[in-house]
């Protein structure tokens, strides 16, 4: 591996690790579930992608191909998880209203009384407020 390659992959690995660290810091510093969720799921996505990229540069193609799968599944699943956890947190009411400067969903739900957004998924009753 050339000297330039070593430097580039080292920068990628360290950058990715730094992003994961900052994500962990956000987890500690942000005020409620929804904002912590952003820190917990998202900087890691980019951080992991950088780490994988840095690792791939140091591997043969055959081993690197498997890492591409890791990257792909991370990109596909991270948004799903944040959506599921976020939605559950919102419905369970475990979030701080004072953190939200705008809440169109909350005003929609309260003006309706009933929750028509459930559609087919049959989640429980609307949060009591």
């Amino acid at each position: 591996m050339s000297a330039v390659g070593t430097v580039v992959s080292s920068v990628l690995l360290l950058g990715g690790a730094a992003l994961c660290l900052l994500g962990a810091l956000g987890l500690l510093r942000f005020p409620d579930v929804l904002s912590r969720l952003q820190a917990a799921t998202k900087p890691q996505t980019l951080g992991l992608l950088l780490i994988l990229l840095g690792t791939m540069m140091r591997l043969d193609f055959e081993d690197a191909a498997t890492l591409m799968l890791v990257a792909l599944f991370q990109v596909i699943t991270a948004p799903v998880i944040s959506q599921l956890v976020g939605r559950s947190a919102y419905r369970a009411g475990v979030l701080r209203r004072d953190v939200l400067v705008v809440d169109h969903l909350g005003s929609r739900l309260s003006e309706n009384g009933t929750d028509s957004t459930d559609g087919a998924d049959g989640a429980g009753p609307p949060p009591q407020r």
Binding site: R29, F30, V102, D103, H104
Partner: peptide, 10 residues
Amino acid sequence: GPRATAGIVA
């Protein structure tokens, strides 16, 4: 950090 604010937009 702890004083971050957010919103939900339709």
